[in-house]
Nucleic acid binder design. Structure first.
Lengths: 219, 219
DNA sequence: CATTATAGATAGTTACACTATCTATAATAG
DNA sequence: CTATTATAGATAGTGTAACTATCTATAATG
């Protein structure tokens, strides 16, 4: 068991000592093993926990509060792999103002969307609000460019593609490891693959946009 | 020409007057038409500009600085639809620390990825860094769960799906409108559809995860 | 003509995520 | 065995970003 002191923990994770102490104080990072009242030993689990925290904050753009709730779920023995998806996803949906009439309309559309495609998800999953938020933004700008519900039809047409992607992604999750590392992987995977897919999608968009709208020897 | 005062502008956009003044001060929102030295009239274009700003900030999670650069591109007559993709995408990639050896390795993998799939994109497109960021996070957590480059193979397998999605998305963009509204739509669309797709993907993940890992009458 | 609503300048606020300092103690290097 | 360096933990301070509030001089409104 390789035990390290806080300085090495800091080096290995690229996180300042002061910040590690901060995470310890908040309980995001479990305390080390005390060898004296001002000495503690840390290990590999602390390194990977710090990396998990940083992934959630930087890649997942979560607040400390959200990280706290995700880690609580990770550490909770009763959290299943399936639960982990929900926890990670909900924490990744940012707070928005949702008291406008436009949003009310959009949430209804989003709920209809879920039913239409028979997605079996928690009825209060934050993704529903997330879809509604996107619809609100699209509807604002679409007027004059696209008919109001073209976006909806367009999204419908994407569903089969996305479904098969997701099905594949779930099917390829190993299921034989210990719970805690599986849950951690699920959380990071939910975030990491989403970012990766977005990056790839953006690459493809730029690629095809270049083909269609060309860049005739840009300035 | 429906001319409105700042109070109505505020109501219509759900943004406080003080905030609108703030955007005016920053130049994100063009000044209204002056009828006196302390009176100005605004119009529909101001309402939609405010909504654009809010979409970029809230949905796109951009900083004011990024919004500034996106709007500058939108207002620049020489910005083509194709340029708009790049501008919107780059502004949506958050700053990260990219001076670690892990990141250096990841960026090489990302560049190889782009070449392998023959994506014709700007060689310094921020998406490349974005993909690298995701790979770093995935590799940290994957150790012990998945072989290091399984993620890479997995992403490769997704590319055809994503390509056809993106191709469809580009093909369905109307191209006959005036430049400025097209560019605006492209910007908002880039963000809005990405969020919407992510939401749908999360729904699908939760759906299939439920099927595979089940929720046997959750507590 | 009293009230309310500006425009624009300036200053203040809030939230968040750290970061720094301090004290008492312990490891370590010469 | 001392001088230096490195803790743990408590407390306070910093920096940034995105607003938000106040103030003055005007102008619109009922």
């Amino acid at each position: 068991m390789s035990s390290v002191k806080i300085a090495e923990l800091s080096q290995r994770s690229n996180v300042p000592v002061a910040t590690i102490k901060y995470y310890l104080r908040l309980g995001l990072l479990p305390a080390g093993e005390y060898t004296a009242k001002n000495q503690a030993d840390y290990d590999e689990s602390h390194v990977s926990r710090i990396r998990l925290i940083r992934s959630l904050i930087q890649l997942g753009r979560m607040s400390i509060a959200d990280v706290t709730s995700v880690l609580a779920a990770v550490d909770d023995e009763s959290t299943t792999i399936h639960d982990a998806f929900g926890v990670a996803q909900d924490a990744m949906v940012p707070e928005q103002r949702r008291d406008t009439p436009e949003y009310q309309k959009a949430i209804a559309i989003a709920q209809k969307f879920v039913r239409r495609h028979r997605f079996k998800i928690r009825s209060h999953a934050a993704v529903i609000s997330m879809l509604a938020d996107a619809l609100v933004a699209l509807s604002f700008q679409a007027s004059g460019t696209l008919p109001a519900d073209a976006a909806e039809a367009y999204l419908d047409s994407m569903v089969p593609h996305i479904r098969s992607q997701a099905e594949f992604e779930i099917a390829n999750l190993p299921a034989d490891d210990e719970r805690s590392s599986m849950v951690e992987y699920t959380v990071v995977g939910t975030i990491g693959f989403e970012i990766a897919m977005n990056a790839i999608r953006r690459m493809a968009l730029e690629h095809y946009s270049s083909k269609r709208f060309g860049t005739p020897a840009k300035k």
